[in-house]
Amino acid sequence: MSIDWITVAAQLANFLVLVWLLKRFLYRPILDGIDAREAEITARMEVAARAKEEASRAETEYRNQLAALQSEQASASEAERRAAQKEKDALLSEARERIERERAAWATHRDDETRNFVTKLHRAGGQALLELTRKAVFDLADETLEARIAAHLAGQIETMDGNLKKAAGSAPDAVVLSRAPLDPSIQQEIRAVLQDRFDGIAVRFDTDATQSPGLALRVGGAQLAWTVDTYIDDLDTLVTDRLTNALEAKL
C-alpha cells in the first residue's frame, strides 16, 4: 500500500476535468432540460388554470343565461297559459251561450210542439168526446147533440143573472159562434130564445174552424158558451192525477 503522489496529482486533475466534462455534457443539459420542462409544465398549468377559470366564467355566464331563459320561458308559458285560459273561458262562454240559445230555442220549439200536440190532442179528444156524446145522446134520448147544446144554451140564456144581463146591455145584435154551420132548426130555436129574451135583437150565426166543438154566444160584453174544452180539461186533470198517483205508488 503506497501512494504515488504523481498519480494523485494526475487523478486530481482528471477528477476536476471529469467534473467539468460532466457539468458540461450531463448535469447542465439534464438539469436545464428538467427546469425547462418544469417551466413548460408550469406554464401549461397556468394556461390550463386560466382556461379552467375562463371555462368556469363561461359556465357561470351560461348558467345565468340559462336561468334568464328559463325565467323568460316561465313568463312566456304563464302568458301563454293565461291567454289559453282566456280563450278557453271565451270559448266556454260562447259555447254556454250557444247551448243556452239552443236550449231556449229547443224549449220554445218543445213548448210549441207541446202546445200543438196538446191542441191537437184536445181537438182529437174533443172530437172523440163529441162523437161519443153525440152517439150516447142519440142512443139514449133519440136527439142530436147540437139540439141538446142549443137547448142547454137556451136554458142558460133564460137563466142569465143580473150581472150578465148588465154586461149584455142593449147590444143591437148577438153573435152565435160554432165550429160548423148549425142546423136551421137549431138556429131558429136559438134566435127565438134570444129575441124573446132581448127584444128585437139581431142574431147572427158565424162559424170558426178553430173553435172547439160546441156553441158560444156573445151579446155585448156578455158571453155564454158550452164547449167540450171544459170536459177535456177535466179529463186531462183526471188522467194526470191518476198517472201521478200511479208513479208515486210505484216509487
Binding site: N14, L21, L22, F25, L26, P29, G33, A36, E40
Partner: peptide, 21 residues
C-alpha cells in the same frame, strides 16, 4: 481513469445530444 472518464462523457454526450424541451 481516462477510460471511465471517456465512457461517462461519451455516454452523456450521446444521451444529451438532442436534448430539447
Amino acid at each position: 481513469t481516462w477510460i471511465v472518464m471517456a465512457v461517462l462523457t461519451v455516454a452523456s454526450m450521446i444521451i444529451t445530444r438532442n436534448l430539447r424541451a
